[in-house]
């Protein structure tokens, strides 16, 4: 391989790396025929949010605006980058019944279960 080509590859990699992605913390619970996924995404606004379902995978991307005002960092502990996480959906989830809401940096995604997966109550008749 020629030197130039190696250089080009190295450049491409650095570009990919500069786009840092963080995995948001989350919790999942099931209640009342729904699966609720809650993710912590501080600094993400509604416009920066991209949620899609593709090949039975739920992709969640939360873009954050970088700091606009430049200054000198005295302490830097917060991690920079966009939030990204992928969840695999199994076939008990009804992909048409997906709902999302964002408040105080917490994203809540409600996934409806398919009717056939919900517990059914069978009434016992007497007599």
């Amino acid at each position: 391989m020629k030197g130039k080509e190696i250089e080009k590859r190295a450049e491409k990699r650095t570009e990919e790396r500069s786009e840092r992605r963080l995995r948001p913390l989350y919790r999942v619970h099931e209640t009342d025929g729904k699966v609720i996924v809650e993710l912590e995404m501080p600094g993400v606004t509604k416009d920066g949010l991209e949620i899609k379902i593709e090949n039975n995978e739920l992709h969640i991307l939360g873009r954050r605006e970088p700091a606009t005002k430049e200054g000198e960092y005295l302490i830097k502990e917060r991690r920079e980058g966009d939030f990204y996480r992928v969840f695999t959906l199994d076939n008990t989830i009804d992909q048409d019944k997906v709902d999302a809401s964002l408040s105080n940096g917490l994203l809540t995604i409600t996934l409806g279960l398919k009717e056939s997966e919900k517990p059914k109550l069978i009434t016992v008749k007497t007599g």
């Binding site: 501080p42 005295l74 502990e77 105080n104 940096g105």
Partner: peptide
């Protein structure tokens, strides 16, 4: 919580991630 402290010409800005806090 993790914080950033940034010094500007006229102020110090403290930024802190607090998701889900009322």
């Amino acid at each position: 919580p993790a914080v950033d402290v940034v010094e500007h010409a006229d102020d110090y800005t403290v930024i802190c991630d607090l998701p889900g806090v009322d």
